[in-house]
Nucleic acid binder design. Structure first.
Length: 278
DNA sequence: AAAGCACCCTGTACGC
DNA sequence: TGCGTACAGGGTGCTT
């Protein structure tokens, strides 16, 4: 499931190979992948455009075009943006294909059809709703302390809320909370300043490490880099997906609980439950 | 503000 | 074999 490190990895791949490319034609196989615009408008407005920049904001891929428009791509669960040579077979899940003047093509594949493409003059309409970038300079420990202090919801749900903090998903929230030894059900404003600092460091170090490995490709193979390669961070996941296995820190068995309808992995010893404490 | 749920989808894993 | 069902997940939108 693409989260910040996976999206960053895709963006870096596209930045290397897509900038300067001109779109010669667009084919849409699943119209609902396109949000806001009719497929005909989407095609008409993209044909002939040249890619100027590729950026990331949260889990959004932001492709800046020569006419000032932005193509926003959200991969959701199973989306992939693949840059390929033109004579290349589609998979069963190809939803949109951008043919490029160089002869290559950019293909949007998405098994579960949750991904979305938005072409807009005002990317801010979408991106300004997001919380701070966890790896950005503006996201200081001091700011995080203030953010946490005024919220009393469950810390895990809060970290997953893209308006609170942009880019985290279920995998990295699980890892960061385990690393910081904080139970996911703890109210955000119940964390000590030491715990907030540990969580801040855990979030950032986990994201940096995952980006360094090119993201996480689980056994289902859902995530692919822009060149089709897998990410290598899965072997470094210490809690996520490890139900019943010994905690790498203390040896207790990792448990799987549900928080906000999401699978959640905790070490009962390292991450004491708030209910058990009170 | 917080929490729950239905929805959007489909592959996988299960029970019978 | 094969059918039916539950589940997984990010985000949106609605209700409580």
């Amino acid at each position: 499931m693409p989260e910040l490190p996976e999206v960053e990895t895709v963006v870096r791949g596209l930045r290397r190979c897509l900038i300067g490319e001109t779109i010669s034609s667009v084919t849409i196989y699943w119209a609902r992948s396109i949000a806001r615009l009719d497929p005909e408008q989407f095609i008409a407005q993209l044909t002939g455009r040249t890619v100027r920049k590729v950026d990331r904001r949260g889990k959004w891929i932001v492709v800046r075009l020569d006419d000032g428009q932005g193509l926003l791509v959200h991969l959701r669960m199973t989306g992939q943006l693949l840059l390929e040579p033109a004579p290349c077979p589609d998979d069963d899940y190809t939803r949109v294909v951008f043919n490029l003047k160089s002869g290559r093509r950019l293909r949007f594949s998405d098994m579960r059809k949750f991904g979305r493409l938005i072409l807009t003059d005002n990317p801010g309409d979408v991106l300004d709703e997001l919380g701070p970038e966890p790896l950005g300079e503006a996201f200081t420990l001091e700011r995080f302390e203030h953010m946490m202090a005024e919220r009393r919801g469950r810390v895990k749900s809060l970290l997953l809320d893209q308006r609170f903090l942009a880019g985290l998903g279920n995998i990295y929230v699980n890892e960061a909370l385990w690393k910081a030894r904080i139970h996911p059900l703890r109210p955000a404003n119940s964390l000590s300043s030491g715990e907030v600092a540990a969580l801040y460091r855990a979030v950032r170090s986990t994201l940096h490490a995952a980006i360094g490995e090119g993201g996480t490709t689980l056994e289902n193979g859902n995530f692919r880099q822009a060149d089709g390669a897998a990410g290598e961070f899965a072997s470094q996941l210490l809690a996520y997906g490890h139900e019943g296995e010994p905690c790498p820190c203390c040896g207790a068995r990792i448990e799987r609980i549900t928080v906000g309808q999401r699978g959640t992995y905790v070490c009962p010893a390292c991450q004491p439950s708030p209910a058990a404490e009170s």
